[in-house]
Write a protein that binds this DNA or RNA. Sequence first.
DNA 1: CAACGTCGAGCACAATGCGCAAAACTAACC
DNA 2: GGTTAGTTTTGCGCATTGTGCTCGACGTTG
Lengths: 222, 222
Amino acid sequence: MTTPIRTLVVDDDFRVAGLHRDVVAARPGFVALEPALSVADAQDAIRSHQPDLLLVDIHLPDSNGIELVRACNIDAFVISAANDAPTIRRALRAGALAVLFKPFDPRLLTERLDRYARFRNLVSGTGPLVQDELDRALAILNGSNDPVTLSRSATEKLILEALNTDEASASEIAELTGVSRATAQRHLVALAARSLVEVRLRYGATGRPEHRYAAASTAEGV
Amino acid sequence: MTTPIRTLVVDDDFRVAGLHRDVVAARPGFVALEPALSVADAQDAIRSHQPDLLLVDIHLPDSNGIELVRACNIDAFVISAANDAPTIRRALRAGALAVLFKPFDPRLLTERLDRYARFRNLVSGTGPLVQDELDRALAILNGSNDPVTLSRSATEKLILEALNTDEASASEIAELTGVSRATAQRHLVALAARSLVEVRLRYGATGRPEHRYAAASTAEGV
DNA sequence: CAACGTCGAGCACAATGCGCAAAACTAACC
DNA sequence: GGTTAGTTTTGCGCATTGTGCTCGACGTTG
């Protein structure tokens, strides 16, 4: 497979769109088109550039990303801040090959892109497929073969849940979760490094400034 | 799962439609509607009966089965005599949850129906899904051939009995049962993957958090 | 017979908690 | 203003515990 996969990000949040475009651009075998910030932009870009893959946010200013996916005969991932089951079912029925819940670790997108590339390699021809080949391709896209190295560890999940929508220090999270302060801090620092958590410093008391952590607001702003 | 999955077969070949309807009708948890022989028939049946799942042949006399799948917000399998890769890609982009190549062994349809039922069970709620849950549901639908049988080996039975109503670590279960710690853990992990066992992490001691296992509560029977 | 699945032993290493030193702040003092 | 002391928080190295994996043995099945 020598032809790069042209990928169009469709998201009205300029910063998120840029982040996802950068993830795509960094992937060997992929070419990232300039993101589209609306369905109308996306349709223009689709006409101009014939992308092979769309990364479409559900909530777009002028329409619904799911309808865009349904209407175009292009492979697509749906990206969603909404994670209610009915929305997800609608996305799958519209033809989404994957659904990713914001905010997600960029490595999850990377992994899904790689899976898609392998899937695409198997179904990209013009000749006949046999059932086994198709099943294998779909298993690559959706299978559970890979160990859950890219999903959040149990402790990470616990810490993110403890954060909820509040801001907290590492000590407070430690008390809420039962892990030690040092462990909570280690995880929070790592999550911040991956942009899943935002950090703010609190001054005014004696001693070092306290790091306050909050869940990343990229999803909440949608 | 108490509500049967109403399933509509859409195929212009009366005999094949009847065959597939019979496969569906024979499946516990499924109700087969009277097959539709054209897209127009199908649209009538969809309005009258609100099917949960369509089995749609691509080649229909008055239109294209893929367009029917695309246009309706209903879970669908596509059944196809055509097995060229471009057609398959179109079907997947239209939202087909599975693609089956005619002629196929009825056991393949049976297996795919069962997978769909389990997938549906996981995504049928109205509440939020997390990424892991969605991924697991899709893996069930399309994953490699994990025979997630409900039968239990002797060792599994032994371990479940040792769990009883208590919470225990793999080491503790190993001592109670006489199997090795690694084997106990293997089985407990597999049981957890099948939602028969619940896992909780215990923090506070030096060293990795300890996985504590408990028999799944009866809430899983919903 | 070969193939396959399960098990146990042993090992590497992942992930935790502890203890402590350093960093970084505020308040007090000169 | 600058300097120092006290305090709080961070960050790190180390020891410990638990997990996950490999590989060979063994029993079962075709």
